[in-house]
Design a binder for these strands. Sequence first.
DNA 1: TCAAAACGTCTAATTTTTAGACATCATGTC
DNA 2: GACATGATGTCTAAAAATTAGACGTTTTGA
Lengths: 198, 198
Amino acid sequence: MKLLIIDDNEAVLRSLKLVFTGVFDHVVTAKNPQLLPAMLSAGDVDAVLLDMNFNTCRLDGSDGLFWLTRIKSSPSAPAVVLITAFGDVPLAVEAMKRGAEDFVTKPWDNDDLIDKLNRAMEKCRMKKAEQSAVSEANLYRERADERKNMTLEEIKADHINNVVKECGGNLTLAASRLGINRQTLYNQMKKPPHTHMK
Amino acid sequence: MKLLIIDDNEAVLRSLKLVFTGVFDHVVTAKNPQLLPAMLSAGDVDAVLLDMNFNTCRLDGSDGLFWLTRIKSSPSAPAVVLITAFGDVPLAVEAMKRGAEDFVTKPWDNDDLIDKLNRAMEKCRMKKAEQSAVSEANLYRERADERKNMTLEEIKADHINNVVKECGGNLTLAASRLGINRQTLYNQMKKPPHTHMK
DNA sequence: TCAAAACGTCTAATTTTTAGACATCATGTC
DNA sequence: GACATGATGTCTAAAAATTAGACGTTTTGA
């Protein structure tokens, strides 16, 4: 498990790092989010604990929202927990709308923060699992659409392939499952990909 | 468009109703959420504007969270926007986690609130559309699983049925699409549902 | 090591598919 | 309404595919 902690206050950074050392295998800290894209590109970050204010002129959290959106733009994005000293309700709501898993205010409680990070990662895993289930299901939908324009010969060849694969190459079993003669199965498999008879 | 407004303060209720009359076709108000399940059962509510505190002894919003969860337990749940005078960040975050589309604090701005309701409904529509797309795609996945255990004869019959349906019953066209002789298509369709040859 | 199962191949009988032809029926276009 | 175009239902005879069964060899698993 790898955690990225981004906060412009060095004392906070040290303190947070201490909290999470032992909880995460790797804890990486950074004083500003400029290097975030590079750090995420490796794809091995499981969670990001992100402060909302970096630009001392802007304490409205828009920096944090910007980087949150940036992090969450990837489908393999890590869990993101936002942390801020100047948090108000509208900011928290906006952050949640943009996909943050949690939003906490300083000062924080160590155990509570650990708990929130764990839950955030779990939630993020769930979201990803759901998303991949969706894309997988969509593949099936696309296949069904393609089937509509297939010739009977192609459908047969396709199904034969599937069943043979399912039977681990056992042609006798596959023929039995398909309800056809073993010889016929041989013939069908000997055919070149697209043979238009006559 | 139908809006449900739940708030224990009658003055607030009247005021909110005024705001949304003209924006929604129907605006129904209630002083407490006890009747919510009954009001939602008709299924014609598009949005709920829900106050977080009804029990005067408990101002932590737990009542609101309870009812939020209750409303969102149905797959056809309406959009929910929470409104509270005692809102803090943790409560707002928890509400968003539980599926609220938005969370606003009193006092409110009329135009802003209208805007938030509209966006909430749009968001809710998007969620539902996504959800129904998922279930539809899952149907296709199930069909593909069933196909695995089908006989070649059954697969052929199934595909023939689909293509014929696709061609609106035009057998000549269907035969052409299937890449088979018209006569053959007649023969296949004349077969009783399950004929195991010989 | 040994038996059961799978493989590859063959044959001859059976069944299916095919192209083509033909008259009839529906379609919609002028 | 007349007419052309395309779909339908049916037939034939040739071509092609499928079938059960058989046989020796190879794999597999106990």
